[in-house]
Amino acid sequence: MKPMETRLALLARKGDGRAFAELVHLYGDKLYQLAYRMTGNRQDAEDVVQETFLRVFRNLDRYDENLKFSTWIYRIASNLCIDRLRKRRIVYSLDAPGADREDLDGYSALPADEHTPEHEVVLTETQRAVRQAIETLPAKYRAVMLLRYMQDLSLQEIAEVLELPVTTVKTRMHRAREYMRRKVGHLFKP
């Protein structure tokens, strides 16, 4: 028996609109959270989610049933996020000297939107600081970190999503964790 998502994808491939709508409801929120954390921006998150589903829809024919559906859809979404960050890096010059990137190279920080709609939970000071630290992580580290801690994927799954060797994912995970330790470790009070 194939997992439910895979079955839904196969039904959608045959033109079943309700199956596709079900996938949108199952993954819309998760993808939005991931994209929002990745891009730090509502508009981008929304665009990424829309674009992801459009690509999924267009490429249902090419979906390999042996791949977990979640792996496939996260792959599309994280690639879109990383692309967006890469483009944004060209627009804004974020390579200001003295930025605390430490040993982490590559594209990074983003202009987060400040406004907070009423329905949103107010973050604690600590949570806010951690969020900000995550946002200063370069995209390739942030992707690994968010897939691990937000989406609860295993290192193996992350490797499949990002199409990287597991050893690379491990290295990035370790570096990201060390970076976060230096940035926010002092906030931890047992």
Partner: peptide
């Protein structure tokens, strides 16, 4: 920090 779903 990641768990919060304040960004709906």
């Amino acid at each position: 920090a990641c768990a919060g779903r304040e960004a709906l």
